[in-house]
Design a protein around this nucleic acid. Sequence first.
DNA 1: GATAGCTCAGCCAC
DNA 2: CGTGGCTGAGCTAT
Length: 668
Amino acid sequence: MEGGFAGNTVQPNSFDKSKVLDVKPLRSLHPVFPGETNGPPFASAPPNGSFPSGFSPFFPFGGPQGSPSTPVLNHNPFNSTAVPIRSFRAELPGSNGENVRSSNKRKLAGSSSVKKKVKRGNESELELAALTNFKPGISAAEKDDGNRELVENVLMRFDALRRKLSQMEDAKEPHSEVFKRANLKSGNIMFTKGVRTNGKKRIGVVPGVEIGDTFFFRMELILVGVHSQSMAGIDFMPMKGSDIVGERVAVSIVSSGGYEDDAEDPDVLVYTGQGGNASADKEASDQKLVRGNLALERSLHRGNEVRVIRGFKDVTNQSSKVYVYDGVFKVQESWIEKGKSGCNTFKYKLVRMPGQTGAFATWKSIQKWRADPSSRDGLILPDLTSGAESTPVSLVNEVDDEKGPSYFTYISTVKYPKSFKLVQASVGCNCSDACKPGNSNCSCNQTNGGDFPYIANSILVCRKPMIYECGSSCPCFRNCKNRVSQTGFKVRFEVFKTIDRGWGLRSWDPIRAGTFLCEYAGEVIEKVKEGQDGEERENNNYVFHTNRIYESFKWNHETESAGEGSSNTSEDFDIPSPLLISSKNSGNVARFMNHSCSPNVFWQPITYEQNNEAFVHIVFFAKKHIPPLTELTYDYGTPPHTDEKESNGDHGKKKCLCGSPNCRGYYY
DNA sequence: GATAGCTCAGCCAC
DNA sequence: CGTGGCTGAGCTAT
């Protein structure tokens, strides 16, 4: 929203720059502007790759919008259209009584080859089978060769399935044997169904995979064809037309800290060969010139390009890893070196091919900023929330000499006027410390239709008409997993000056799909003034409307059994009355999020009870994995047509600069 | 074509 | 909390 304002309409002197955010102690901090901008590209919002067939506008509030009367949140939470996982159970022909264990590698009935832990009459098995019931929607040609849209489609569908499986796993008894590893299982289902792309191995660039693309599981690398080994670090393929029989060259490597690699210089990587590791039943040994090591040696002589994927510890979740595609390199030299164990290891020096902006360099500088935030180039303020949030938000300008956005008061949540009486029978749960996903006695679980809305890391599982978090009458603790949006954001944001769209929002952390980002804070207002003068128009740029028309999109996991018209997969929101939130005078980081026609963020209504009142909050989640320093954007929607006669028709139409291939050309 | 072997995962327990 | 152990997946090679 800041973009429309600062990008096009503002006169530079129309606000008092001395009142930069009213943060007194830091106003004197003299910003340092670098001579040139060589940061990563802004707003590289990729094309909208989700579910090509699923797009159609929808009208959330049936007819013409009434005057925004006092919203009364009185609908029965138990009327939620969502259904529990169990309702996804599918009838599997002959699956009863066939569950005699013959081998651990026995295949599941039907076309699926999902392996299983066998237990008699296992319900989980049937649930799992139901989840494999979806249309691959990927042709044989697309399985071999991909493009950006396919890559994004495959990744989003994988993660939707993984979240669903994780949710099921969370709901099981603690020591249940099933679904221990949702990522592997969902990967397996995707492979079995043929939902993958770039399955044909190749040397060099993979169509649809861009430098900086971020992954959270090795399975994802295989699914989009960037590195097709589930564990091994070196991937290779036969060299066609080679004189040497069975010659293989390396096509990609993953460097993620398992060996003694040297990765100080972002353009050079000294990679350690594979093998020779000590294990439970094996001593450390000399590495052999076979397999991956041999392939890298051949690549040195052939001079072919080798893709490099860098792995890091995920800062937001130390126990897991995050992978970044860093571009194509060439093997420049190789040698043998004694490792720490005293055994011989192969070393390969890889050097980045020219003409590529590396992603690794960006990641390294962010690590530096995290240790010392003042080392950030162009830093204006280290925390524009002045401590209002538990995670600081940097204010940065590397583009020009503007010292900050115009004045506003930072508030961390939405404010409803006193006249709004939102009544809801408060049904608190009885959970003692934290609500448990599988607990069907927890009324908060019931309110959410039986499905716990979140999995680990506060990842949202599915979009829903409404999500109910625990409230103040619930005795569970503040760290209950069903209190995600109300406990403040955890992402390390920065508000930054874009090149042509005013101020924008992005993150230092890599963000997984489904991550809670922030809510839309501001003041709930009764109506928008449709005026002609600049001030009113500018005010309107800061209003969030639930009564706009938003492009529908599919984010949840699909099954064939839950077809069209089935309410249990509805991703359309359901808010009792139109809601208008103005962040002009008061707001949080959300007011800086710009519009994109191919956004990487979506919003979701959430409610919870506080002091016997419940209000709707508009809460933002990541639509897909988002690399660090990529601008965060959502779809501003378009005003309903029924509004046309109320003003002169253009509703403050603005030229859209989102740059996506699907750009509508303008936004509101 | 089945299957054992290989391996810079990813968990959870300790 | 780091570390170890353990079960794994797809791909490769036999």
